[in-house]
Nucleic acid binder design. Structure first.
Lengths: 118, 118
DNA sequence: GCGAGATGTCCGCCATGAGCTGACCGTAAT
DNA sequence: ATTACGGTCAGCTCATGGCGGACATCTCGC
């Protein structure tokens, strides 16, 4: 039967990674969708979709959201890079711990990328 | 007499950065638009536009192009990050103050996870 | 219990732009 | 001057970005 550790393509999409970082950053700041959205001049619904990787934000909107979050594009990119490293890391145990950590503070299922074991 | 060193805000857009990296990588490999495009199942014209930052590629297409270039998404992101660092030469210390402020409210920042390159 | 408020998600609509085809421009050979 | 190659421009269509409105969950206070 299928070996879980031999998944064909658990490859995350860029928009998913970006969305996760955005949401994480926002929640770290204890801010709401409404707050950040209005500051970035986008609708709450849309920001929600972006954060969950449902919609592909334009570079301009991305910049506006970063602005609203008080972070630089470079920070976002760096975070995404880190998440990619974690995904790709050959050490599975460490990752699970961290994934559990992050999920623990989120009251509802955050539908994360982390689940895919590799 | 405009001071060149005091530009208003020449903030680069993500799609521009990505496009630049894509083109650079392709040219480093000595390959043509047609080659890469057909392997990624996109049109030459479109790939050209993406590389020049005219069009915003979907995450799926980005993945396909990376695939065709034989690089990982992580490589692309890393390159973009590097380019951003170069842009942002002056005063890297200033930003840390603000960043630290906001991060301070989040108790759970698992900062230890390093970026050893693989 | 009920209602109200705050936060986030789902549904469906419309205008924008992603992604295509075809024509075109610069080169350098032949 | 014609062919061939590598890349760009113009224009079109239809998928999707981005929104307004209703809705699910909470957590309060009555």
């Amino acid at each position: 039967m299928a070996d879980i550790s031999r998944r064909p393509k658990p490859r995350p999409l860029l928009r998913t990674l970006v969305g996760d970082v955005l949401r994480r950053r926002r929640q770290e700041q204890g801010r709401t969708l409404a707050e950040v959205a209005s500051e970035a001049n986008v609708s709450v619904q849309y920001l929600s979709e972006v954060e969950r990787g449902r919609k592909e934000p334009s570079s301009e909107i991305l910049a506006a959201v970063c602005d609203s979050l008080g972070i630089e594009l470079a920070d976002l990119v760096a975070d995404v890079g880190r998440d990619l490293m974690i995904d790709r890391a050959p050490a599975p145990v460490l990752r699970l711990d961290q994934a559990r950590l992050e999920r623990a503070q989120s009251p509802q299922r955050s539908g994360g990328v982390f689940l895919l074991a590799a």
